[in-house]
């Protein structure tokens, strides 16, 4: 029942290996019993910042501005998207899927941050995302 696939919908299956959307639930929710210790989660705070889209960034503003300037409101009465934003949505129907994909990209960032890149078994899955990871991470770090 848990593995039901909702293709083309906004639903994300928890078993799909995409940690991005549940990370704060696994780390910050769940039962706590004070007599038990919790392992040191060194690096988690950085990881949480690093793994997420920073909307309020100069980079985003410039992309929005560029998309705005390219808009031809007369020619296009339907919808124009912001390229590259959240991974670049191309059409409304595709938009949601693209957003998911960008979250997976961040999942990749997260994976890298969490593991220090030592999880070879998922290397293949991660490869296409590396470009985005490389592009966004240093900028974000430099802001800290």
């Amino acid at each position: 029942m848990t593995t039901t696939r909702y293709a083309d919908e906004v639903v994300c299956r928890p078993r799909s290996g995409n940690l991005y959307d549940v990370l704060e639930l696994i780390l910050d929710r769940g039962m706590v019993i004070d007599v038990f210790v919790r392992v040191s989660l060194v690096g988690i705070e950085i990881l949480k910042i690093d793994a997420r889209i920073v909307v309020a960034s100069v980079d985003t503003y410039l992309r929005f501005a560029e998309a705005c300037n390219r808009l031809d409101l007369e020619a296009d009465t339907r919808s124009t998207t912001v390229p590259e934003m959240f991974g670049g949505a191309a059409a409304r129907s595709l938009g949601k899927r693209k957003v998911k994909k960008s979250a997976e990209t961040l999942g990749g960032t997260l994976r890298k941050a969490v593991t220090g890149g030592e999880d070879e078994e998922e290397e293949e899955e991660t490869r296409p995302r590396r470009r985005t990871t490389a592009r966004t991470s240093p900028r974000r770090r430099s802001k800290e």
């Binding site: 780390l27 392992v39 040191s40 969490v114 999880d119």
Partner: peptide
């Protein structure tokens, strides 16, 4: 540690 495989 909070590695991806351990979280999963």
């Amino acid at each position: 540690r909070a590695r991806r495989r351990d979280l999963l």
